[in-house]
């Protein structure tokens, strides 16, 4: 099925400058794979060399962090939105 993946501003240069990418997927993992297949330059910005999501990259299915769902295997449905958000933190 077709779902939307929202791309944050820092990753858009590697995603054809698109803020939303439509992908065909049954799971969150397939959605991310489809995004990377369409835009290979995104891979190294999303995944480390061992293929895991980089530590500062958060992936949400609607309002849920996929780490607390079934991670890559989390199933998606037609109306779902996957959102990629790098973390925001710091301090003096």
């Amino acid at each position: 099925m077709s779902i939307k993946v929202l791309i944050p501003t820092p990753l858009r240069p590697y995603a054809g400058k698109q803020s939303v990418i439509e992908v065909t997927a049954q799971t969150v993992g397939e959605a991310l794979s489809d995004v990377v297949a369409k835009h290979p330059d995104l891979r190294k910005h999303l995944f480390s060399e061992d293929g895991k999501l980089r530590s500062f990259v958060n992936v949400y299915l609607n309002d849920e962090d996929i780490r607390y769902l079934n991670k890559d295997a989390t199933p998606v449905k037609e109306t779902d939105t996957v959102t990629i958000v790098p973390s925001v933190a710091g301090g003096r």
Binding site: P8, F56, P86, S87, V88, G90, G91, R92
Partner: peptide, 8 residues
Amino acid sequence: TDLAEAHW
């Protein structure tokens, strides 16, 4: 710390 934690 600000730089280490900045990713955008």
